[in-house]
Nucleic acid binder design. Structure first.
Lengths: 340, 340
DNA sequence: GTGAAAGCGCTAACAT
DNA sequence: ATGTTAGCGCTTTCAC
């Protein structure tokens, strides 16, 4: 494949035209200190006249860095990407990266072939670091990157023993706060609809639920726990089952807003009023809190801060490679709306 | 910023270990012909033993190509990205690029600063070509890329005089077919809800509407045309106005499925049965055809083919830079569902 | 079929 | 403050 347009002026030609050495031109285009103002101006004029643009491959080769980071989406079902959560976290990361001088590159990894292609790309030095989101527990990519000593930060953990650097929301604390809020309202029959048992995020949210109840001296019966899978349908089914077996239920913590939306529907179908009879709180994964009826009270994850924290950790790893794994867990926030 | 891990083996070390010259190793890793099978195997073993990974910066510099293409989203409101249309076209492009050996890199361009940053990135040779989607009529990026002689392909046109290479759906033909279908049903009072008048895609769809009516010898009153902006809300309002002024309306072409969804709601609110009293067809921009009640008959854009065509054009431009602008207009398809 | 050598365009260390 | 020089790791002739 014969690519690349010819005739692009080089740094050498700029230097010749400006009547200076190559080193000086390099200093000017990199905004390095120690260049006389007049020289700098002469160089800049030569650059403008020639329409010079630095060759990034040459810069990478000599400077041993790419000035770019990748945001990898390992989601086989790319349709998930249509969820607001994705676009919001991408926005947050874009903002966080904006004033670092780094290019943010999103890449899809949907198959093993693409996994390998990306790994070559990253190991080949085209990016200085990698941000990973929506990583499944069995995804080998984080380990592959770690083994290649590529600075990497995950959004969320794969398990309690995650060793790759990550930023996560305080799911345990969030669940505890949510249940605490229900308890404060005097509700005592509090059920929960969980996420898939094999996902760490779901385990944490369930654990927070347990802890809050125990703190209040309430045991919480096992049959008040229904497993869902974050989908609306699973929320409907789980809630219907719960309310049938335990008509006394007056509060529900759902593992996601989607599940919560399903729960709301099931409650209404069962003739319950929300929040008068039953209060519902969900985790704000796919922000649809305001789209439900009634608007959903949620445990909100601070996406902007998550984005900033991820970029900060990544920059640290890039500065000082593999000194340690870095972990940040961000506080969640209870956003009260009509459902609780 | 001190980046890059050291100790990465180079091609030279591989050559030494395999007892061959560097040229031979290069041939092997590039699958070039003319290497004895035994030599090739020896080299591959050395590569495996050393864990060698080619340095992509060096390859780019020597080979004058990046083996990567960018997909740029110039959408200031990145939230739009949550639309299914985006994720589906991204999937299609990802598939189309998958077996070309190119890395597909998505990048956000939401501000002038990001526009410049990306331009430097592209002109700096980090990508061999650029795919642009959701380009607004006044976006200067396509012109900037064209001026830099960077192979570029747009999804959709900015105007009738688009000169940068593009792939578009046959919006005129699609509208004509849709209206033709309504006429075939014996409907004669056919209204339309357009998109923003300053968007080329909306102009085309309106033109197809006109042409179909004229072909049938029906004039079509100006007051049967209501301007919307692709949103559901605009569809509701426009339809309410239309049905109030012209109760005889028995068919509607909406410029998008979102608008059509709004129209359906307004029709029901006005007591009309769909499709018995009024038939509705919308363009399938943000595929929600099956989510409406009744399911929406649509003019569907062939996203897979659009993706393939875009990549094909881009590869052509990369082979043979700026010989000519290339344009492809893909047939649309009428998908009948209950609303018409 | 394979090795040697000449760059690709830049950064960074070292002179001056 | 600025010029000079030595690579960065690869591809690609050109000999052999």
């Amino acid at each position: 494949m014969g690519r690349r347009r010819p005739g692009t002026p080089t740094l050498e030609e700029v230097a010749a035209r400006a009547g200076v050495g190559r080193g000086t031109v390099s200093r000017v285009i990199n905004n390095a200190a120690g260049v006389k103002e007049s020289t700098r101006r002469a160089v800049q004029q030569a650059i403008a006249e020639l329409g010079y643009v630095p060759n990034l491959a040459a810069r990478s080769l000599a400077g041993r860095r790419a000035d770019a980071v990748a945001l990898v989406m390992t989601e086989p079902d790319w349709r998930q990407f249509a969820e607001p959560f994705f676009s919001e976290i991408v926005t947050a990361l874009g903002d966080a990266v904006a004033d670092t001088g780094l290019q943010l590159l999103l890449t899809l990894v949907r198959s093993d072939a693409e996994r390998l292609r990306f790994l070559e790309y990253a190991r080949g030095g085209r990016v200085d670091g990698v941000l990973l989101m929506s990583v499944h527990a069995d995804d080998p990519l984080p380990d592959m990157l770690a083994e290649a000593r590529m600075p990497t930060v995950l959004l969320g953990r794969r398990s309690a023993e995650e060793y790759v650097s990550y930023v996560d929301a305080d799911n345990i604390g969030g669940a505890r706060t949510a249940v605490g809020h229900l308890l404060d309202q005097g509700r005592t029959a509090i059920a929960t609809i969980t996420g898939p048992a094999d996902m760490y995020v779901a385990q944490c949210r369930l654990r927070g639920y347990h802890e809050a109840l125990e703190l209040a001296g309430l045991g919480g019966k096992p049959s008040w726990i229904a497993e869902g899978d974050f989908t609306e349908e699973s929320g409907r089914r789980a809630m219907a089952r719960l309310i049938e077996r335990h008509p006394e239920i007056d509060g529900v913590l759902a593992a996601s807003d989607t599940t919560a939306a399903g729960a709301l529907q099931a409650l209404r179908a069962a003739g319950r009023r929300v929040p008068e009879d039953v209060a519902v709180i969900g985790f704000d994964d796919f922000p649809l809190a305001r789209r439900t009826a009634p608007p959903l009270t949620t445990v909100r994850q601070p996406l902007e801060e998550i984005g900033r924290a991820m970029v900060r950790l990544l920059l640290e790893e890039m500065e000082e490679p593999s000194v340690a794994w870095r972990h940040v867990i961000l506080r969640t926030e209870l956003v009260l709306r009509e459902s609780a």
